[in-house]
Amino acid sequence: MSHDTMDLTLHVWRQKSSKDSGGFVTYVEEARGISEHMSFLEMLDVVNEKLIEKNEDPIAFDHDCREGICGMCGLMINGIAHGPDQTTTCQLHMRVFKEQGITDITIEPWRAKAFPVIKDLVVDRNAFEMIIQAGGYISVSTGSAPDANSLPIPKENADKAMDGASCIGCGACVAACPNASAMLFTSAKIGHLGLLPQGQVERDDRVLRMVNKMDEVGFGGCTNIGECSAVCPKEIGLEFIARMNRDLIRASLAKGDSKKP
């Protein structure tokens, strides 16, 4: 393991608050001597330490687990959501840039009407919460469950449900979609629950309510382009969108619209 370093040029979106208009700031000096073994966020940590040294406001970006599972991190890196490796921003390592000979890096926040910028690279993803609250659950109160093995589920379905359930809610799908559509996110939850027998009772209602909410909070529609799936760190496939479309058509034919408030 050698300690090769790189000198980078960063163009970072800086925006003081949601009310301010932002702009790009270029950092060169602060991004010198970056080790290829750093993660992308560690690289930003180093830049921030240098900014603090110079009495300049550090770059704000969201992150928490730094192991690719909480879904908190997410940056548009050189025009690709989460950057050039299909993973989360926190799991992206600088050696990828080294290997590809990239030293010029543009960093932008997720951009979507439904994800307003809060500060610098931090966005508000509450729209996702609203979609889940609209029906992304099975209504079972604590204590009312039957024995776990009373309901066998074919392994294949359980596995497919798990594929959808592995969504981390980072929002890369929205960020990457030319239409800022949230179809992949929404369909992953609908698919997860709809593939399980427990999820059948509310299946029609769920899809109607979640899709209504998805449109209401300002996401664009889907044009079946597939950018979402191509940047998804959990590699959730477009078949979840197809499944959701089918569920919606079926539910609309059966019920028209959700009767629940």
């Binding site: 163009h11 690709i80 951009r111 044009t223 382009i225 597939g226 950018e227």
Partner: peptide
């Protein structure tokens, strides 16, 4: 639909690369 889509992202990216999209799908 295209109105909805353009409303979906009022501020464009400075840099954006396609990973999956092809010419045909972007030209609809």
């Amino acid at each position: 639909l295209s109105h909805m889509a353009s409303r979906g992202r009022p501020v464009a990216y400075k840099q954006r690369k396609d990973v999956q999209a092809n010419f045909a799908s972007r030209m609809m």
